[in-house]
């Protein structure tokens, strides 16, 4: 388990309401990525957000490296920009499936939640493959009524990556 994401006692009614809200968040987030609207991706984060994609072997050993590592919204913007404007890669489609949302802690306007994700990738000349199986460890904060990610750790089980990971998860 990722440290800080053990289940604490959360009021059941509150957890249900939040889970619904977080599921809506995941749906909108996945839609932005899966429909290729990468410019929208940074808008799901706070200005000081940390975003990291890392292998489970690193998470388990407490190692800090990220396949993708950003510690500001500006860096998240730069990555969106690089993917859209500078990077060369074969065309592909992606779909994110987010399930098993669990609110583990609520402290004021800060909410900690876990979820599982599957990332399907389709290269135009190959089969649709399960590119990653992973888990989100998220810290949300409410800003002007809207949930934003203050910290998202994407921890993938699929240690051996099929060539590369182009788009974020």
């Amino acid at each position: 388990m990722y440290p800080g994401f053990e289940l604490t006692s959360v009021d059941v009614q509150q957890a249900r309401a939040l889970r619904f809200e977080i599921e809506e968040f995941h749906t909108a987030y996945a839609h932005a990525l899966d429909s290729g609207q990468l410019q929208q991706w940074p808008e799901f984060f706070t200005d000081d957000a940390v975003y990291r994609i890392t292998a489970r072997e690193n998470a388990d050993e407490g190692l800090p490296v990220g396949l993708v590592y950003a510690d500001s919204k500006a860096m998240i913007r730069d990555r969106a920009f690089a993917i859209e404007h500078t990077q060369m890669f074969a065309p592909r489609y992606l779909q994110h499936f987010v399930t098993n949302v669990c609110v583990v802690a609520v402290e004021g306007e800060t909410i900690r939640a876990r979820a599982n994700y599957q990332l399907l990738q389709t290269l135009v000349d190959g089969p649709t493959t399960l590119h990653q199986a992973g888990r989100y460890f998220d810290v949300f904060v409410r800003v002007n009524g809207r949930l934003l990610l203050k910290n998202r750790q994407c921890v993938y089980d699929t240690l051996l990556i099929a060539n590369d990971l182009v788009y974020p998860v």
Binding site: E57, E61, L63, P64, V65, L67
Partner: peptide, 11 residues
């Protein structure tokens, strides 16, 4: 100081 690992297949 090891910071972590990645692995990938490259076809």
């Amino acid at each position: 100081k090891v910071l972590g690992f990645y692995r990938n297949e490259l076809p």
